[in-house]
Design a protein around this nucleic acid. Structure first.
Lengths: 161, 161
DNA sequence: CTGATAGCTGCGAATTTCATCGTGAGGGGC
DNA sequence: GCCCCTCACGATGAAATTCGCAGCTATCAG
């Protein structure tokens, strides 16, 4: 579950120096690349790379995972839902984050308070999510749905530029 | 770059059977899990797992990558941009997908034609992207931005339920 | 029946990972 | 200056994993 890195108390991000960024870039290209190959690329020994990677994982700065196009694994309907909330947005975000079908929750500035991405098996499932799980949450004032028609790009390679 | 699985001509997804889904679930928990451990979990030999994983990667069904919270690696501004298009949406989506700062492009049904997620270093960078790179694209009729305030959930574990 | 194909297992060799130890560069404290 | 402590790194050998390949079986078409 997880996600989202832990911050230290000043609100500053954990220190990620240039070398660690270079390591992250390597792993953004291929999450299974051997430590020795990464070391050669960034100028560190295998052991040093391994220790840094472990620390980045422990700190929650980075995760190494498989990602798929949901459509290919049987989820035929995806949608982004814009949500407007009455009062504090945090508890609503919290409640939404607990739903399995919800993959992504972000608090935003703009004409929606929250953006929520949901992944469903079919139209019935999607409809149920929106009506029964989202719109009926206390504090939710209104929602607007954007059903995905086609995914055109999906990358995880920030920093590789 | 890449992304998004290839489909066969009937529009059907490449076959991903239950065993491959189980393999994907294992790798969604830990992208570096050894093949032997995955094999034990799904009931296959190490070599068979390895062959299947390679095929899933080759087919583009799955990628194994490092993902980070952009904030921890120096990108302080993220936003979702809803775009409305004049005429065909495909060429606009294509043009947007080519921008480095654009991480996510999806064609949607609803009051936006496209949703685009962008990752920027700071406010100036964000402003430049929206005005100079997105709104000035031929075919873009209007945009609406949702600047991210806080990321609450981000998972990659579809199928693990 | 024959040949072709796809997917699996088993196995030995090559490579990678891992735990551990020794070293050297800071950073106080006195 | 000097000592001590910490931290990150490199080195090394043992253990674990990955890799390539050969062989087996089931399925399908002719």
């Amino acid at each position: 579950m997880v996600p989202v890195a832990t911050r230290d108390k000043n609100g500053a991000s954990p220190s990620v120096d240039a070398v660690s960024k270079a390591i992250i870039e390597q792993l953004q290209e291929d999450g299974r690349r051997p430590y020795a190959a990464i070391g050669k690329a960034v100028g560190l020994s295998e052991a040093a790379v391994r220790q840094r990677v472990q620390k980045l994982l422990d700190q929650g700065v980075m995760q190494i995972v498989a990602v798929t196009d949901p459509l290919t694994v049987g989820f035929r309907r995806q949608a982004m839902v814009g949500v407007n909330v009455e009062g504090d947005t945090d508890p609503v975000a919290e409640a939404l984050a607990e739903l399995d079908e919800v993959e992504y929750v972000v608090l935003t500035a703009g004409s929606f308070d929250l953006l929520v991405e949901i992944v469903c098996e079919d139209d019935d499932h999607l409809l149920e999510m929106i009506n029964k799980r989202i719109r009926s949450l206390p504090g939710v004032r209104s929602t607007e749905s954007f059903v995905y028609l086609k995914l055109r790009k999906q990358t995880y390679t920030w920093g590789t530029r």
